[in-house]
């Protein structure tokens, strides 16, 4: 991802301690930094109605098209979305996008050796927004990251035909469109704290916990 100077400075302001450590220690960052400064999409499952507007706007925002030289949002094909709404029976709609897990099991699972200069594996945490990024040149397409995410967390990584990880939340460069356009105010862009419920687990697990709360 290309980061503009302005974005970089904004990122520094958001969490300078975290950023400083990231560049040296890769995924080990945030427990060390002491101040938790990751902002992520936080979902209020009590408000979601399952309309999937977030999928359409995410897709449009992250897959722009060029029309007569002008960059425009894409059509909104939900298949390209980095947020997915999983529908369950009894009726529960579970939107899940990258939790930006503090311990990032996806990066832990990446078998590519950390770069001696940057400390980064092929999968790494972006300096500015702490999003999960993939270095296309170093990724070997083994899909270990996707497996780890699916087994332990939200299952948000969908590898492409070459096995390259896709669909990790970009936070739309600090202005997440899903949050902006969620008609039900179910999505927020918040600094994450350890006490936030229903994070860093599989959609099935979230569904199970919610089903117990709603339908028993």
């Amino acid at each position: 991802m290309k980061v503009s100077r302005k974005d970089f400075i904004k990122g520094m302001l958001l969490g300078s301690a975290g950023v400083a450590v990231t560049s040296q220690l890769g995924f080990m960052t945030f427990s060390i930094s002491g101040t938790n400064s990751i902002k992520a999409i936080v979902i209020d499952y009590s408000k979601c109605t399952g309309c999937r507007t977030c999928e359409a706007v995410c897709s449009a925002s992250n897959h722009p098209v060029s029309v007569a030289g002008e960059a425009l949002p894409g059509a909104g094909n939900p298949d390209f979305s980095n947020i997915k709404v999983w529908h369950f029976n009894p009726p529960l709609d579970i939107p899940v996008t990258c939790f930006l897990c503090e311990d990032a099991p996806c990066i832990a699972a990446c078998p590519v050796k950390p770069d001696t200069v940057t400390g980064r594996k092929a999968l790494y945490r972006d300096d500015v927004f702490q999003t999960i990024q993939n270095d296309l040149n170093r990724c070997i397409g083994c899909q270990s990251c996707a497996d780890a995410c699916r087994e332990e967390r939200g299952g948000v990584i969908f590898p492409d035909d070459l096995g390259q990880p896709q669909r990790m939340c970009t936070l739309c460069q600090g202005n997440p469109q899903c949050v902006k356009f969620c008609p039900y105010e179910a999505l927020s862009f918040l600094e994450i704290t350890p006490d936030m419920p229903l994070r860093m687990m599989t959609p099935e697990k979230i569904n199970q916990l919610l089903a117990e709360a709603y339908y028993q």
């Binding site: 009590s46 109605t49 399952g50 309309c51 999937r52 507007t53 359409a56 009726p91 529960l92 709609d93 008609p183 039900y184 709603y214 339908y215």
Partner: peptide, 10 residues
Amino acid sequence: KRDLACYACQ
């Protein structure tokens, strides 16, 4: 218990 929407509906 919950409000449900169809595709893209508000």
